[in-house]
Design a protein around this nucleic acid. Structure first.
Length: 651
RNA sequence: GGGCCCGUGGCCCAUUAUGGAUCAGGGCGCAGGUCUUCGAAGCCUGUAUUAGUGGGUUCAAAUCCCACCGGGCCCGCCA
C-alpha cells in the first residue's frame, strides 16, 4: 500500500525518467512554500543542461521551471479523491503503510520491581508502546516483552525486607508497598555496612557518619508514610549485622541460580506483588505486553555454561582482574562488527572489557542479558531494546559479546536509547524511597483535566467526565514525552505538559473532536457525505494544505517506524490539527453556499478526523468523546492551577 | 583522563535521515482583538532569533566536517 502522496511522488519520478532525469529522483523535495509547487527538483548542479518538458498527466497537474527548480504541482482534486477513497477503504487503519512483515521483538519498560514506576519509566513505556504500534502499522509481527529483573543484588535485599515485613496495609498500591519495604531494607543494609566500617581502623569517620545521617533522614520520611509498619520492619532488620546481610544475600543469589524452590518462591512473591501494581498503571495508560520474561527463567545453568564455553573457545576471551571477560576492543575490530558502522563510531575507541562471572562464579546482569538477547533473537528477525541512554555502553558490550561468540544475528540486536526525564526541584533516589511516582503524575494530570472539563462544561455527566479526563490527562503526558526527540533530556513540568493549549495533546484532541462534531452535526441534520464528493470545490489554500498533509501521513508513519523517530509523527499530527483549527474558524462547512461545497468540505472534515484518529492511535493517544465548552468568560480559577494541585499532592 | 549525547527568540519544542528557493516553523510569555451563526482547550493582530563560538567543504549549511565553549550521561565482580 502506498500513500496518496506517495502515488503522486512515484508519478513524478516516472515523469522525470521520461525526460531523462531518472537519476535525479533522490533529490526530490517538498518545497518550502506550497504555492511554488508540491514537489520540486533543484537544478543547480545540472548547470543549464536543457530540459525538455512533456505534457504531464495523472496526479501531476503542472510542471514548470522557476528559480532553478523544476516544480511539480499536484492535482489536488485527484489527490483528495485518492486520500478520501483510501480512508473509506482503510478506516482508522489509514496510516498503516505495510511492507513485507518481519518478526519483531520490542523489549521496553522493564522497570525493576523494587519501586513504583516514575516519569522516566513512562517515557520508556510510551516510546516502546508507540514503536510497537508503528511497526505493526508497518506490517511487522510485533511482540512486546517486559524483562522482569528478579535476580539482582537489590532484589535480594528487597526480598529479605519482604520476608521480615508486616502485612501490606489495606488500600496501598502493591508496588508502592514494595517500594517502601525495599527502601527500608536497603537503608538498613547500608547502615549495617557503615556501622561495620566504623569499627575498622583508619576509616574516614566523619564522612561515614555524614552518610549515615543522610540515610537516617531518608528513613525518617519513610517512617512518616507507615509509622507502625516501619517500626516493625526496621526493628527486625536492625538486628542483622553486615555479615548476616551478606551471607543472606549471597545464599539467595546462589539459590536463584540453582533454582532453589524456597528462594524462588520468596522472590516470586515479592516480584509478583510489584508487578500487580505495574500492570494496574500500565493498563491505565493502555500499554500492553505480550510476554513477561522473568530473568531467573531465562538464564539456565546450561545457558550460562554454554555461553562461558563459547567465550572460552573464542579468540576474545580474556582475564580481567582474575575473572573471565570478553575483550570488547578486540571484538570491535572484527570485520562483521565494524560493518555495524554506527555502532563502532558511536562507541569510541576504548571499550572496557565485559565481565562474565563474579569470582564466586555467579552471573552478572550483563551476562544474563547476553543469554536473554540470544533467546529473543531466536524468535525474531529484529530485536529492539528500549533502554535508557545511560546504558549505551552496557548495551554495546552485550552486542559485542554476541559478535565475540559469532552469533549469526548479532547485527539484528538494536539498542533504542532515550534520555532521562527530570522533575524540577526533585532528586529521585529509588533506593531510598524518594521519588514521585508515575501514578501521582497521572492522578494529577487527570484531576487537572477533570477540573478543566468541569469548568467548561458543568453539565457533563460523571461517567463521561471520568472517561474524558483520562483521555485528556493521560494523552497530555504521552504527547509531552513523545513529541520530544528521545535523545534529548527533558524536564517534565506538569503545568507545562498540562497547559492544555497549543502544542499539546488536548489541542490535537480538540481539533479531532471538532472535526467529528461537524460530521455528527451534519448527520443529525440529514446531510450525508456524498459518495463521490466534488473536490474541485476545495480551492482554499488551507484546504489544499490540509489535504497534502493528510495524504502524506502514511509516509510519515513509514519514516517514524523505520528510523524510530516517533516525534516525526507527533509533529505531523500537530500540523494537521493546527491547520484544521484555523481553517474551520474561518471557513463554514455546514452553512456553505451549496450542497456541492458542503459535501467537499464535509469529506475534508472526515479526512482530517480519520487521519488524526489513525495517527493518534499509533501514538497511543485516545480521543475523548466530548470537550464541550459553554459560552462563558474564561476565568482562571485558583484551584485549577497546577502549582496548587501539585503542592497538595506533594504535601 | 577517555567516550557518547545535547546546545535553535526571555523560556520550551519542531526542522538536522536525503544540504537547497533573500519570510528558520509552532508554542509559552507579553500587548491587543474575537463567542446570537459547525463547541473560545479555538481563532485573528502585534512582539522577538548572529540556529553556542570560530573555521572548513559547497553554487548553496541550522543541516556535512574540524576545533573550541557550555550542559547532561557513561567508564562497578550494581542493575
Amino acid at each position: 500500500m502506498v500513500s496518496p502522496f506517495g502515488e503522486f511522488k512515484s508519478q513524478v519520478e516516472k515523469y522525470l525518467s521520461e525526460i531523462g532525469l531518472g537519476d535525479q529522483v533522490e533529490r526530490l523535495e517538498v518545497p518550502s512554500d506550497l504555492r511554488l509547487g508540491h514537489l520540486a527538483l533543484p537544478l543547480f548542479h545540472l548547470h543549464g543542461k536543457p530540459i525538455n518538458l512533456v505534457e504531464p498527466s495523472g496526479l501531476i497537474a503542472s510542471v514548470n521551471v522557476n528559480n532553478n527548480y523544476l516544480n511539480f504541482k499536484c492535482n489536488i482534486k485527484k489527490l483528495s479523491e485518492a486520500t478520501f477513497n483510501q480512508i473509506k477503504e482503510m478506516g482508522e487503519n489509514y496510516c498503516n503503510n505495510r511492507v513485507q512483515g518481519m518478526q519483531v521483538i520490542i523489549e521496553h519498560t522493564s522497570a525493576n520491581p523494587l519501586h513504583p514506576m516514575h516519569i522516566g519509566h513512562a517515557r520508556n513505556a510510551f516510546l516502546g508502546d508507540s514503536l510497537a504500534r508503528l511497526m505493526k502499522a508497518r506490517g511487522h509481527f510485533v511482540k512486546t516483552h517486559f524483562y522482569v529483573d528478579d535476580m539482582g543484588l537489590q532484589v535480594m535485599i528487597a526480598t529479605i525486607g519482604f520476608k521480615n515485613s508486616p502485612k501490606k496495609p489495606e488500600g496501598v498500591k502493591p508496588d508502592h508497598w514494595i517500594g517502601f519495604v525495599y527502601a527500608v531494607a536497603n537503608i538498613m543494609y547500608e547502615i549495617a555496612g557503615i556501622n561495620s566500617k566504623l569499627n575498622e581502623n583508619g576509616s574516614d569517620y566523619s564522612s561515614l557518619v555524614k552518610k549515615r545521617d543522610e540515610l537516617i533522614g531518608y528513613a525518617a520520611s519513610l517512617r512518616e508514610k507507615f509509622p507502625k509498619e516501619f517500626d516493625e520492619l526496621s526493628s527486625s532488620l536492625s538486628k542483622m549485622s553486615l555479615n548476616e546481610w551478606e551471607r543472606a544475600i549471597s545464599t539467595m543469589i546462589r539459590g536463584m541460580e540453582v533454582k532453589d524452590q524456597s528462594t524462588l518462591k520468596l522472590v516470586r512473591d515479592l516480584v509478583n506483588t510489584a508487578l500487580l501494581g505495574f500492570k494496574e498503571t500500565l493498563d491505565r495508560v493502555n500499554v500492553n505486553f505480550d510476554e513477561w520474561d522473568w530473568e531467573s527463567q531465562q538464564a539456565t545453568e546450561e545457558d550460562i555454561r554454554g555461553l562461558v564455553e563459547s567465550v572460552q573457545d573464542s579468540p576474545f576471551k580474556m582475564l580481567y582482574k582474575g575473572v573471565l571477560a570478553v575483550d570488547c576492543n578486540a571484538v570491535a575490530k572484527l570485520p562483521e562488527a565494524s560493518k555495524d558502522l554506527t555502532l563502532i563510531e558511536k562507541a569510541g575507541k576504548e571499550i572496557p572489557p565485559m565481565l562474565l562471572l563474579r569470582s564466586d562464579n555467579t552471573t552478572l546482569y550483563q551476562t544474563r542479558d547476553v543469554i536473554y538477547s540470544i533467546k529473543k533473537l531466536a524468535s525474531a528477525d529484529e530485536v529492539y531494546n528500549v533502554v535508557g541512554a545511560e546504558q549505551s555502553l552496557a548495551q554495546l558490550q552485550v552486542k559485542l559479546a554476541l559478535y565475540a561468540i559469532n552469533h549469526p544475528k548479532a547485527s539484528r540486536l538494536h539498542h533504542v536509547p532515550y534520555e532521562m526525564v527530570r522533575l524540577p526541584g526533585r532528586k529521585m533516589a529509588g533506593r531510598y524511597g524518594s521519588y514521585v511516582t508515575l501514578d501521582e503524575v497521572i492522578d494529577l494530570a487527570v484531576l487537572m483535566a477533570s477540573n478543566e472539563i468541569r469548568r467548561r462544561n458543568p453539565q457533563m455527566d460523571e461517567q463521561a467526565l471520568i472517561k474524558s479526563s483520562e483521555a485528556i490527562g493521560i494523552g497530555a503526558i504521552k504527547y509531552a514525552l513523545l513529541s520530544v526527540s528521545a535523545q534529548k533530556v527533558v524536564e517534565f513540568q506538569v503545568e507545562r505538559a498540562l497547559n492544555f493549549e497549543e502544542n499539546s495533546a488536548p489541542f490535537i484532541q480538540y481539533a479531532a473532536v471538532r472535526a467529528n462534531n461537524i460530521l455528527s452535526t451534519a448527520s443529525k441534520r440529514g446531510i450525508m457525505i456524498p459518495e463521490e464528493p466534488d473536490f474541485s470545490n476545495l480551492t482554499d489554500e488551507a484546504e489544499q494544505e490540509i489535504i497534502l498533509l493528510c495524504s502524506r501521513l502514511p509516509d510519515t508513519v513509514a519514516y517514524a517506524a523505520d528510523t524510530l523517530h516517533v516525534e516525526a509523527l507527533a509533529s505531523n499530527v500537530m500540523e494537521i490539527a493546527d491547520k484544521f483549527n484555523s481553517y474551520y474558524a474561518r471557513v463554514p462547512v455546514l452553512t456553505a453556499d451549496n450542497y456541492s461545497v458542503i459535501g467537499a468540505r464535509l469529506a475534508l472534515s472526515k479526512i482530517v478526523y480519520m487521519s488524526l484518529r489513525s495517527a493518534l492511535s499509533l501514538l497511543g493517544i485516545a480521543i475523548p468523546e466530548k470537550m464541550r465548552t459553554y459560552l462563558q468568560p474564561r476565568i482562571k480559577l485558583a484551584c485549577c492551577s497546577a502549582k496548587a494541585i501539585q503542592t497538595t499532592i506533594a504535601g
